[in-house]
Design a protein around this nucleic acid. Sequence first.
DNA 1: CAGTATCCAAAAAGATACTG
DNA 2: CAGTATCTTTTTGGATACTG
Lengths: 134, 134
Amino acid sequence: MSTAPTVEPTGNWEFQVLARNCPSRPTLEHVAGRWGTLIFLVLREDPKRFSELRRAVDGINEKALSQSLRALERDGFVARHASDGYPSRVEYSLTELGASTAELLHRLVAHVEERMPEVLLAQSAYDEEHRTER
Amino acid sequence: MSTAPTVEPTGNWEFQVLARNCPSRPTLEHVAGRWGTLIFLVLREDPKRFSELRRAVDGINEKALSQSLRALERDGFVARHASDGYPSRVEYSLTELGASTAELLHRLVAHVEERMPEVLLAQSAYDEEHRTER
DNA sequence: CAGTATCCAAAAAGATACTG
DNA sequence: CAGTATCTTTTTGGATACTG
């Protein structure tokens, strides 16, 4: 028998996340997904209460916000501080891991927004190119 | 009349994308969404054919790949080159806009993967903390 | 206030088959 | 090969109501 082949069982990727069933894939989805990115952007400024987040992330509903925050807390990006008392008061903040991730998301979003004029032009050109009859 | 107020109609955000109905929100979802990020990572290396992408992005199906590529092409991140002939041969590559975006996504993914041990620990701690009876 | 529970509608995922 | 079409199943969205 020769030595072990250099081929991995399911492929040879630079990033684990390209493999299905890799634990980083769900985490990346929590971070970069529809609501995750926006929550990071808002928490990057200051800790926020649940209702502040709900208002800041326009269009999110309570269910989605609750689920997103729970996933990000479980992954260690967000910390939840509940002061006891009534009415209840809960604050969400970024952990060090969350803050470093938020920086990268911030750059990504800033870049996309900066280049949106170009994107809108590309969209118009594409639509022009691909419109079928009428 | 005084000068225009500094308050925006629907809020005062650092990023447009925090507003519902902002054109950058769908674009950000194409880029950072479930498949978008992975497609960028793969195309960052080299141009790829449809079937190469399908194999490289483990778990994606043809419909999702086709839809994602169309969205990214429309937004101007990806260019599609079809050589005529049979069997057909189509290559997808990143535009300059796509390549610069891919760099930022690459940093984000590298960061998340680097810190995955910490994430896994946080998940265990969370599950331990929150398990109810039994 | 900070959520959870419920229900319904809408959308997206997934598999399979088919075509230029 | 590079997709599209179709159909079924799962998720998600969204509104409303309710609880500690």
